[in-house]
Design a binder for these strands. Structure first.
Lengths: 340, 340
DNA sequence: GTAAATTCTGCATTCGATTGCATTATTCTT
DNA sequence: AAGAATAATGCAATCGAATGCAGAATTTAC
């Protein structure tokens, strides 16, 4: 019964102008006299007209859609990033379309195809590995691609990440200052640059302090394997009394194992540091010492890079690393004489 | 340098058929001979052709985009739901575009406009209140709208929620079976149907057990106010020894206040129950007794309703309530003789 | 006040598909 | 094997807006 799709033509008729005039009023950069603008705006308001973004996209070749590929949202880091990304892009007149991808190459390929089908103007890959073929496809199609929170090294692709190496190093310095007897490291998925960089920084930092890791297990960024990794590490008689866990979510699991399964006190028996500073890190139940990922800054930079690439058409490869501070909380208090 | 936008016409030329033939091969429901199909498929593959979804949308009037409005993603419940929704819609060939809305009417109105601009085929409003005007606009445009996790009562709008009343009631029965001295309730945002239904069920359940609430404060679904609410409730000399907190995230905060600020034991001094069963509820640090929201089922039903509305064009108003089980964990163990 | 420069405007085309219609090729009937 | 029924194909119009072009209106300059 009511208004069936108001088009620019309807508005044109009512305003007594041509369809092009209407289009010009709603297209920024186009010129129209004040009189026309007023007439059109009035008619448009009366009819409840708004330009059809899809039709516009067809002719301009810009969809104003950014595709976000994510493997999982059950690490708090991603929803927080998504929220910020969505808000930041909104400011630029863009919107986020979410594409969940499992970690299989096949699935990722399908997802990239789907994104291209929707003519996305840019792609943000959050911790999802795109093969170089796929990345190449995007480049060929002229679609800027940014890796968020994970880089593909040696592939010359744009990425925005935390400065994981620096963070790992700082954690080493911090833990070493406690002069623990033994230091442990629980690794994430070893294919991930985040994991590798954090560990590399950590090891180098320890070396600089004349220390090394006495025990290392792998938790692969998931709860189940992390439980096993923690149990393996701390069931040993001479277990570490200081441990760096590759990300916060794993750190929570480790803390649970220590306290609930092994009845060890954190930080009494073991001091523990994570990485990310996701919201639960501040919850009193965990009060996790960790290195903050400055999600806001990371998103900001990502948007900046994307917008630049979209508007200029040129996409210089950059690898931004955003350093974040060590946030000292209960799981590993500041050692004597510690200064930020 | 490489392929600049392969269109159906390019494929048609190469396959030696008309452009319409190409279209028919890629349009399900259209007919083409096997020979044509083969030729077209081959040419398409060689050129790397895929239909432009936007162009298709323009003529079919279906964008295959579902708009999801969310106010915040920092309650774990939403990312989990988003992930499931995205996956479920993918199966149907739809994709989710995320629209963040702050809680102001103005902002929500803007967001709805933006969604309409993108010609979304359906809207899911997750805990975001759309005024009846806006809901009416959607109806007028023929766009199905589902309220997810929150209903607008008295407005005759479709919603999919947990059976919050039943859940609240079950919690009452459970807590009453502990025969606590005093029972408290910490409310969420009172404008939310989730809050109201949970409380109503809880109160009715208590009444049925011959009990009532001795203390009630409001946490408004956010951490800061919840802290204050918990402190107010439990600083009193004769504070409750059993409390229902309107959702899990608030429950975590309350638990933190009890343990860390007030040095009360949970469940020793106070037993505590939440609602949602978000992932951290199972973490040993909290081990929260709670009622599960069956997100998977809720999403499933949402998708079913939407697809039905989209394909038939008719959108009967339904209010689905999905019941979820009480999950007993450490924060409130099973009372003697308790049977599911 | 007139010529030159500038700004507006409408016409018609275009973006990349889908689809009704008319025509031709195939298949089925008997 | 001929006619009827069905399937496949191409043509051309269409979806809703943007835009190059040429002419009309307005502004600027002197």
């Amino acid at each position: 019964m009511p208004n069936d799709k108001i088009t620019s033509l309807d508005v044109a008729k009512r305003a007594g102008v041509s369809q092009s005039a209407v289009s010009r009023v709603f297209t920024k950069g186009a010129s129209a006299s004040q009189k026309t603008i007023d007439k059109v705006r009035k008619a448009a308001k009366e009819l409840g007209y708004r330009p059809n973004v899809l039709a516009r996209s067809l002719i301009t070749g810009r969809s104003r859609i950014v595709g976000l590929v994510v493997a999982y949202l059950d690490n708090y880091f991603y929803p927080v990033a998504l929220q910020k990304l969505s808000n930041a892009l909104k400011e630029e007149g863009y919107h986020v379309m979410v594409f969940m991808a499992s970690d299989t190459t096949k699935d990722i390929e399908r997802v990239v195809d789907e994104m291209l089908d929707y003519q996305v103007d840019a792609i943000v890959a959050a911790s999802v590995p795109l093969s170089s073929d796929l990345a190449g496809r995007c480049r060929d199609e002229g679609i800027p691609l940014v890796f968020f929170n994970r880089s593909q090294d040696g592939e010359n692709l744009t990425s925005v990440t935390a400065d994981n190496y620096a963070g790992g190093k700082e954690i080493a310095r911090f833990l070493a200052a406690h002069h623990p007897e033994r230091i442990g490291y629980i690794a994430g998925f070893e294919g991930a640059s985040t994991q590798r960089d954090r560990e590399a920084g950590f090891l180098d930092g320890l070396k600089a302090a004349g220390r090394e890791v006495s025990s290392r297990t792998v938790g692969n960024f998931n709860a189940q394997e992390t439980r096993a990794a923690a149990l393996a590490m701390f069931s040993a008689p001479r277990h570490p009394d200081a441990v760096f866990v590759a990300n916060d979510h794993m750190a929570f699991t480790v803390m649970d194992v220590l306290r609930s399964d092994l009845h060890l006190s954190v930080p009494g028996d073991v001091i523990l540091v994570g990485y990310d500073d996701v919201p639960p890190a501040v919850w009193a139940g965990y009060s996790l010492t960790t290195v903050r990922q400055r999600t806001g800054r990371m998103v900001e930079e990502t948007v900046k890079v994307l917008m630049n690439a979209i508007t200029t058409g040129e996409a210089p490869v950059v690898n931004l690393k955003i350093a974040g501070p060590l946030i000292v909380r209960g799981s590993a208090p500041a050692p004597k004489g510690w200064t930020g």
